[in-house]
Design a protein around this nucleic acid. Structure first.
Lengths: 335, 335
DNA sequence: AAACAAACTGAAACCGGTTTCACTTCCCGG
DNA sequence: CCGGGAAGTGAAACCGGTTTCAGTTTGTTT
């Protein structure tokens, strides 16, 4: 039975102070006498007062809105990050506003401008699609946080796994099982994560004294089809390999299907490891060994951090390691 | 080099009219002399004027914001709908604001209140988690559209596939292949989609004169684990069946894994059909036969419709059939 | 005890639009 | 040629907050 929305004037009248004072207790900008503060707070409670976001923002205050620019909604990994972000904002007073750049630079630029027009209090990038300088510049205009990527110049405002190390561990897992002919199906060419995972692959092989065979390194696009095509190609050429490290899970599924087409069994004939640990892969046949990224937790951490930045409170970033989750798609290499 | 944001006063000055007139051409509320209208439009172009959303909304105009309440972000089906929505709003002047009820009624209620506080111009539900009366009531306060569900009382404001028919077709597909012992793993108990798919299953069997065996109807939760558990149960009991209709794709994957555990082959021993056609399933081993829902298109249609509703312009809803996509997880029943 | 900084406070201007109101023109039928 | 409704317009009030400005109290310093 909320007759009408209470305004700051209603509160002022009820608490017997001026609206200026109400505004002060609302924003904690200037000391207010304890007695009046209490009266105001009581009045706010009684009338169930919620300040009008628009009036507030118009007058120069916070908009309580956070822009979230996802590199590509529809990717399960990024989506899970979004879920983490949303879950943390729920009930925090802040609201996320999403945009999807769909891997397109122009759209990303435009989305940022739109966000700025809407006076967002903070901006979260899911994946860093813009150049580092550009992001630094944006950060000078509005508090910015990046999740799912690491920028050197904004190290305290990023959270993401160490993809090089994760790629290294994934490859190492295969090497320890005795594999020497290990394929890597890469992710999208210029994608930083893809590059780092590949570097990890190279380091693991090199450290173990296994030469890198360029023919075993395939181009890919982080999707099922490219994993499928790359594997089919290799198989048709009769190229020898006993294990595959795919740049992400869906790509690994493509790899597995291609192997199946050639009557090869996973993991008896060929071991396959993916990356991300999206929900579905624990139910593939056989369940996929993969590198788990704590996506949800990353989202929560990002949301926590941006609120900290906005209010100039200290915040801490958790350590979020990417761990190899061993299931049934990898096994000892046959002697 | 946009020195500062242009305001309506700047436009008024430049066009040599009052700000009232500028507002009029902006909103097309009152006739304005052609000459002045042109002058105003020229001035707006010259100064690259974009009205301040907050001032506008505060003064009672549109907020150009659409609330989108998803029943469960993180579900690939709903996510694809979101993508469709976002893609259509991009560049339309409207902006979507997302919330995730996470299948929780209280959160959903709260999210709606928050949306209303933020003066959204329209509201889109992805999946109908609230009761029909509740949604009708909300619709009386703000234009509302539902995607992924059908409400009788708001038929022109819903888009979604006919789940009963889709469930019927899925089951029919199995029957036509000669199957008579067909399992159905249901979705979440009170979920309308789940109920309708089950009804379709029943109708198909009944029409074909196949009695419904309650033991072949399993409870499920739209997830992989419940598909897995249900199948394991059946197998342990030694219950005879040659085909499974799972309420969605991930559930079907759980079913397949359980069959694999018992050394049963899909589709030679058991046929499996899923629902949704999420991206991954065309790369499972073997690729999954499923019912395709045109999720992206549904999102686009919803976004189009809500803008039409807000501006009281007529809009039309496309016909979006759910089609059985036959791949390799279903085959003729052995005689 | 005088002097001055810090704590508190309310009135009023301001943010950038929309809308009401009052008023002037213009056009048309009778 | 007159009356009346429609077209067209600007001034000013209003939306609900924040912030500046100008004081008034109070508490410390010398």
């Amino acid at each position: 039975m909320t007759s009408k929305k209470a305004t700051i004037d209603d509160i002022a009248k009820l608490a017997n102070v001026s609206k200026s004072t109400v505004s002060r207790v609302l924003n904690d900008t200037t000391p207010v006498h304890e007695e009046k503060r209490a009266a105001v707070e009581a009045a706010m409670k009684e009338l169930n007062f919620k300040p009008n976001v628009f009036a507030r923002s118009l007058a120069g205050g916070q908009s309580k809105t956070i822009g979230v620019l996802s590199q590509h909604l529809g990717s399960p990994f990024y989506d899970t990050i979004s879920e983490g972000i949303i879950s943390h904002f729920t009930g925090s007073g802040y609201w996320p506003m999403f945009a999807d750049s769909n891997d397109d630079l122009t759209i990303a630029d435009q989305a940022v401008e739109n966000f700025l027009d809407r006076k967002i209090d903070g901006l979260i990038f899911i994946g860093a699609m813009l150049s580092e300088e550009k992001i630094v510049e944006i950060n000078s205009r509005v508090p910015t946080f990046i999740v799912g990527a690491k920028l050197d110049s904004l190290a305290k405002q990023c959270i993401g796994v160490d993809n090089e190390l994760a790629g290294y561990n994934a490859t190492k897992h295969l090497i320890e099982l005795g594999h020497r002919w290990i394929v890597h199906v890469k992710g999208i060419q210029d994608h930083l994560d893809a590059i780092h995972r590949f570097e990890g692959y190279r380091r693991a092989l090199t450290e173990s004294g296994i030469p890198i065979d360029p023919e075993l390194v395939c181009e890919g696009l982080f999707d099922g089809q490219s994993g499928y095509d790359a594997t089919m190609d290799l198989l048709k050429k009769g190229k020898k390999f006993t294990a595959v490290f795919a740049a992400n899970d869906i790509c690994a599924m493509g790899v597995k299907l291609a192997l199946h087409r050639h009557a090869l069994t996973v993991p008896d004939d060929v071991s396959v490891i993916g990356f991300d640990d999206q929900d579905e892969v624990s139910f593939t046949v056989p369940p996929l060994t993969t590198v788990r990224q704590p996506a949800f937790e990353m989202g929560v951490a990002a949301a926590t951090a941006i609120i900290g930045m906005i209010n100039k409170k200290p915040y801490s970033l958790p350590e979020l390691p990417a761990e190899v989750t061993v299931r049934e798609s990898t096994a000892k290499a046959k002697p």
